[in-house]
Amino acid sequence: MSNHFLFYLGKISAQIVLDFLYFPLWWYSTGLLRLLKSLGLFLQERWMVIGAGVWLKNIFVPMYGQRDFTSRAISFFIRLFQIIFRFIAFIFFILLSLLGVFAWIAFPVVVVVLIFNKIF
């Protein structure tokens, strides 16, 4: 019985140690990929909410079905304004995501360096 117990204990503790050693590697490989993926989904959703694509696609289509020249001209500029405004909003979210990626990469390094400085 005790033999078995020791066998299990050895095997399990080895696994935990491996897990702990593997996790920094994971942080910069699989973990980073997963972060990028979820940020991609986040941006996709933002893009849909902001709807700049719809405005861009219809840039020459007059608004409210008004097809005379003046309306078309007004419509074009309004749409242009909308597109610029919406793109700016989207760029904000891109920057936010980039900040997230940067934080992910830098965080462990900063923490380890700080600890290192404190101890030594």
Binding site: F20, P108, V111
Partner: peptide, 18 residues
């Protein structure tokens, strides 16, 4: 120092949850 070390555990939790 305790707080900083705990951050490593926090990252470990993120890893396990993910």
């Amino acid at each position: 120092l305790v707080f900083l070390i705990s951050l490593i555990f926090l990252m470990f939790i993120i890893y396990r949850m993910s």
